[in-house]
Nucleic acid binder design. Structure first.
Length: 273
DNA sequence: TCCTTATGTACAA
DNA sequence: TGTACCTAAGGAC
């Protein structure tokens, strides 16, 4: 479930699973990361970091000079388990293991050993991340405010804002009653401030619960006297993957459309221009 | 067993 | 804009 909240949660979970100082077995059963894994084998995990959808694992006994850079893409998955680790399947790109637990990485778009400088370059090409304390929302609004591109596309552009994916994009626009096709430059500073603050809160909750929930208590099916939801992605949402179903608030039909090769979902009644 | 789909991105044309 | 890449689950047969 890789939007930014998943990656920040993984950074926490990797660090919690493998305390600094404990040497790890590092392997790549699939083979695609075998050379790097051999270099890292029997060294401890020192630090983890996350920016948007990018995860960084720093190995060694001191401040890392090299990092494992991981991006899950659309399919990547990480599974944690207790020792003893089962025999790995042939899709495990990276396995970390110690005496008490193991973690398997499968299907990432990126899993590469990079230098500290290369890591900085990744940070430099990413926009502010609502989950990072150093993030500057004004930086994002400066880009959005000059753009004729739709706000729906801008929210997915990691150079503009890092960590938002297709679910948070759809849900935050719904929560603020914003038509996804409005141009970025028509988003007022007040609207942007509210969107940013909401993303900070929603994504922090996402890290805490390891899933995306966006429905306010007063709009849950129970509170609205409607039948329980039938979403299959784990969280409570207003519009994501709810095409042709009734809007939780107005009862109108949720619409869907292609936008930049992704599925956009919105309620045309609640999200007017 | 095959087909579709998915919370993503990079690159070619 | 289209396509390639990575994996697994669910649904249609």
């Amino acid at each position: 479930m890789p939007e930014g909240h998943t990656i920040h949660r993984l950074a926490e979970d990797y660090a919690a699973a493998f305390p600094a100082g404990t040497p790890l077995r590092v392997t790549s059963p699939q083979g695609k990361f075998a050379d790097a894994a051999a270099l890292l084998d029997r060294t401890p995990l020192h630090t983890t970091d996350a920016h948007g959808k990018h995860l960084f694992l720093g190995f060694g006994d001191a401040e890392p000079a090299e990092w494992v850079h991981i991006h899950l893409g659309l399919f990547g998955k990480v599974t944690f388990g207790p020792a003893p680790a089962p025999p790995p399947t042939d899709t495990v790109r990276l396995r970390l293991a110690d005496a008490t637990s193991y973690v398997d990485l499968r299907g990432p778009t990126t899993c590469a050993l990079i230098t500290d400088g290369e890591k900085r370059a990744v940070h430099d090409r990413l926009g502010p991340d609502p989950l990072r304390p150093d993030a500057d929302p004004a930086l994002a609004h400066r880009r959005i405010g000059r753009s004729r591109t739709t706000i729906a596309a801008l929210l997915m552009d990691q150079k503009v804002i890092a960590g938002v994916g297709n679910v948070y994009r759809a849900e935050v626009l719904f929560r603020h009653g914003i038509d996804p096709y409005r141009a970025g430059r028509d988003i007022t500073p007040a609207e942007w401030d509210a969107i940013w603050a909401d993303l900070v809160a929603l994504m922090r909750e996402g890290v805490r619960n390891n899933r995306i929930d966006t429905v306010r208590p007063e709009h849950t099916p129970e509170a609205m006297g409607r039948p329980p939801r039938v979403d299959d992605h784990g969280g409570e949402v207003y519009v994501y993957r709810r095409a042709h179903l009734p809007c939780h608030i107005c009862g109108g039909e949720i619409r869907t459309a292609d936008l930049a090769a992704r599925n956009l979902f919105w309620c045309p009644e609640c999200q007017r221009r």
